[in-house]
């Protein structure tokens, strides 16, 4: 007895059934993964568009029962969101540009084999991946440099990452040396070679690193809590969302933590609930990543693979 399934010929019922069972298993696992990943977003999205008091009655799973934009309006109007959005965008852009430029410049200089300080400098940078003095020693350094209470505390401490350095240097090493050599013979300075050749030629790997840096900068919130919690004008979007979240989880937290989010909830207690505000905030903070994700996703797998090739 022979059976055909999926363009293949099976010699026995047993092997056909085994293959069929395996296909069913695969379909279940993939559907489960897709559903498990996407449904929580969908549920949050639906709640964010449903009227707040109605949501507390439960049963909002797949579609809003009473549509409203009130949740979004209230976080936009009463909290610091518009300003936080500006701070977050500025942070992501500044961080990404500075990170890429400085890390690539360092990676280029330390990829020159003839450079006499290549080895000690590389060691200093690579070891920084494993050295961490801890929270408060870092805190006092940044305070000593008077970075606390400024926008630059978001940018300056994290301009170089050893991991990104490895990724970019690995890539630069694959660029044919002859390209740089001919420019050098023409008397072009190293900095100009870096700007004119190394930087543009590294575009594919820079796209990946840019994605990582931008996402990291966009998602950070703890440094705001540490250094800028007394400066509402420097709050980032994630920090605002954190405040909303903490407030909705723990109504009796200290006033400092709740900040403007607490005010928002008090003023609008009759029309919005912490849960609705939280959902709207979550969607608000996720939307930019969801919007760029489909376009960038082809880059990061490449980057992961480059990163895994060490040395």
């Amino acid at each position: 007895m022979t059976l055909r399934y999926g363009g293949k010929l099976y010699l026995s019922t047993r092997s056909f059934l085994a293959e069929l069972a395996f296909s069913v298993y695969k379909a279940i696992v993939l559907s489960f993964i897709v559903l498990m990943t996407l449904y929580p977003f969908w549920n949050t999205l639906v709640i964010s568009f449903n009227q707040a008091v109605d949501t507390t009655r439960g049963g909002i799973y797949f579609w809003p029962r009473i549509w409203t934009l009130q949740n979004y309006k209230s976080i936009w109007v009463t909290s610091n969101i518009p300003n936080a959005l500006f701070i977050s965008v500025a942070r992501a852009v500044c961080s990404t540009v500075l990170n890429l430029f400085l890390t690539t410049m360092l990676a280029y200089a330390l990829s020159r084999r003839e450079f006499v300080l290549r080895k000690p400098f590389t060691l200093i940078v690579l070891l920084s991946m494993y050295v961490n003095a801890g929270l408060f020693p870092n805190y006092f350094l940044l305070r000593g440099l008077h970075l606390n209470g400024t926008f630059w505390v978001y940018i300056i401490p994290s301009m170089i990452s050893a991991f990104n350095f490895i990724v970019i240097r690995t890539f630069i090493k694959t660029i044919p040396e002859s390209l740089f050599e001919s420019a050098r013979i023409d008397g072009t300075s190293e900095f100009k070679i870096f700007i004119r050749f190394a930087l543009p030629l590294s575009k594919p790997v820079l796209a990946t690193v840019a994605l990582f840096v931008a996402v990291g900068a966009w998602n950070a919130w703890f440094d705001t809590l540490l250094y800028n919690s007394a400066k509402p004008e420097l709050f980032t979007l994630q920090y605002q969302l954190m405040a909303l979240l903490q407030q909705s989880m723990n109504q009796s937290k200290s006033a400092a933590d709740i900040n403007t989010a607490g005010m928002a909830a008090n003023i609008l207690a009759s029309t919005v609930t912490p849960m609705s505000i939280r959902s709207a905030g979550t969607i608000f903070a996720t939307a930019p990543i969801l919007a760029v994700y489909p376009f960038l996703q082809k880059y990061f797998v490449v980057g992961m693979n480059v990163g895994s090739i060490k040395e």
Partner: peptide, 15 residues
């Protein structure tokens, strides 16, 4: 993987 922990915590506490 690309979401912040703040967003993830928000989703988890809703779920």
């Amino acid at each position: 993987h690309f979401l912040s922990w703040v967003v993830v915590a928000g989703i988890v506490s809703t779920m």
